[in-house]
Every structure is written in structure tokens, then in C-alpha cells.
Amino acid sequence: MLDSAELKNQLRTFICRELIRNPNYPLRDDEPLVTGGLIDSFAIAQIGVFVEKAFKVYVPDTELTVDNMDSVEKMAACVLASAQKGR
């Protein structure tokens, strides 16, 4: 079972290091990522790859949307939902 807090931690670390390119960026869990200009639509696909590799969860393309990916909180909820369905 995926732990929500751990999932958010790993997503936050990945986003700051790989997508914002600043490991020290003080990212809040509710901070708008796409609409806030921190990441772009390309990064949405990259989140999909990261989640597949790190957690063995395949988030369907239909769920990889700006609405579902616009904050660490939303992402984590979406990944957990996909993991539930994938069982």
C-alpha cells in the first residue's frame, strides 16, 4: 500500500530537482505547478514516467491532465486513485 505522505515527499523531491531544477525550492503541497508557471505540460508526461518507475503505478493518459497534476497534493491523490484501480 502506498503511503500518502511518503508519496508526496518523493513527488516533491522529484519535482524540485528534475522539473524546477532547484533542489532547495520551498515547494508547498498546494502550490499551483502548471498554472503557477513552475512546470509545463511536458512535465505532466514526465510525472507519468516517474510514477511508473518509482511506484509501479500506471496513471492512464486520460488522468494525466492539468487539473489532476497542478499541485503535489492533487498529483498524490491521482496516483493513489490509479493505484487503487490498478489492483
Binding site: F42, A45, Q46, G48, V49, E52, Y58
Partner: peptide, 10 residues
């Protein structure tokens, strides 16, 4: 690059 880096194995 986008295809190389962001297409999933599945």
C-alpha cells in the same frame, strides 16, 4: 527528446 524521456514502457 520528449519521446525518449517521457513515453512509458507500458
Amino acid at each position: 527528446n520528449h519521446l525518449v524521456r517521457r513515453v512509458r514502457e507500458r
